[in-house]
């Protein structure tokens, strides 16, 4: 048997399309954003003001580039919005996912397990725009009328949790975080569920023999052995939350140039901002706005790349594609 015939080379060439696509994405984004990177410098990630400038006046030369008068591209508010909403989403999703995984792996009769675990998996396949629709129609009113006033009644003495300090529309940080949490809970839960089913039988039996209750067996002997996988699942979920666009765009309220003062305040994330601003950025005759958006895409790409690489190191063989 030959080591490499023409057929194998042919297949290898096809397989190389995937790495090539990835490299093309980085190169073209970087090449397109190049001028913006130099024009914006560090202020890009360090300042809050995003302004296209006066698009009707003649462009001026600023820092060596033609840009509209008063143009300023600072994305700190969007970085904060992205990190804050993803952090809250993980905060909500983690306990729910752990509970769900334990419930499915240990509490449910084996007969019901496939059906119920499929239910959880299905949450992960709901298109993000449909989550957004549900968020607009169900969740935002719920937060505006019930959950928000409820939180205010309990924690209202802290300005950050008081809905009266915001517009109270129901579109904002909390709504976006809850929708994101719904989207990433199944990712964390299924990762943990798979790992719990793999825990060696002996470990469980030893714990039972020592007199542990069944719940103690799960929390004190099984969970510690799958701790690393759990962290990996969380990081995997984080990667999804950071790059989520549609659902966040639809329920976040779309803030521009301010940091969230309460959990009910509208926000923008980097991903949602790229999409919502493309139309207005195209009005800029100097193209610097569109190039700055490309720079946001590049920053987002680098962040998710790092996060996903970390997840992969933590969960051996982790992929977004589950072995069904």
């Amino acid at each position: 048997m030959k080591r490499s015939g023409p057929f194998r080379l042919c297949l290898a060439a096809i397989a190389m399309v995937i790495p090539a696509a990835l490299i093309f994405i980085v190169l073209f984004l970087a090449q397109y954003a190049w001028q913006a990177i130099f024009y914006n410098g560090v202020r890009f990630v360090g300042t809050i003001n995003w302004s296209l400038g006066n698009l009707y006046a003649n462009p001026v030369v600023s820092r060596g580039y033609h840009v509209p008068i008063g143009a300023d591209y600072g994305i700190l508010a969007f970085i904060v919005g992205t990190l804050f909403s993803s952090f809250l989403a993980i905060l909500f999703a983690l306990p729910v996912a752990v509970g769900t995984a334990i419930f499915l792996a240990e509490a449910v009769p084996a007969r019901l397990r496939p059906g119920l675990s499929m239910l959880v998996e299905l949450v992960a396949v709901v298109p993000s725009v449909v989550f957004g629709l549900w968020g607009i129609y169900v969740l935002a009113p719920l937060i505006s009328h019930d959950i928000g006033p409820g939180i205010t009644a309990i924690l209202g003495f802290i300005p950050f949790f008081n809905i009266n300090n915001s517009t109270g529309s129901g579109f904002g940080l909390l709504t976006a975080s809850i929708v994101l949490a719904l989207m990433i809970t199944p990712i964390i839960a299924t990762t943990l569920y798979d790992a719990l089913l793999q825990v060696p039988r002996e470990l469980r039996e030893s714990a039972v023999a020592l007199g542990a209750t069944r719940f103690e067996v799960v929390t004190k002997t099984m969970l510690p052995t799958v701790r690393v996988t759990l962290i990996g699942g969380v990081v995997l979920g984080l990667g999804r939350a950071l790059g989520e666009t549609m659902a966040v765009l639809m329920v976040s309220g779309g803030a521009l140039n301010y940091l969230p003062g309460t959990i009910f305040t509208p926000i923008s994330t980097m991903a949602s901002f790229i999409l919502s601003q493309l139309d207005s950025a195209l009005q800029d005759p100097t193209n610097m706005a569109v190039k700055s958006l490309a720079e946001i895409a590049l920053v987002l790409f680098v962040i998710t790349l790092a996060v996903n690489a970390a997840a992969r190191v933590l969960v051996r063989g982790a992929t977004f594609v589950r072995n069904l």
């Binding site: 989520e244 987002l300 998710t304 996903n308 992929t319």
Partner: peptide, 12 residues
């Protein structure tokens, strides 16, 4: 790299 490409946000 294939897994990495899966993780790239669709907006990017």
């Amino acid at each position: 790299l294939s897994d990495t490409l899966t993780g790239v946000p669709s907006i990017v």
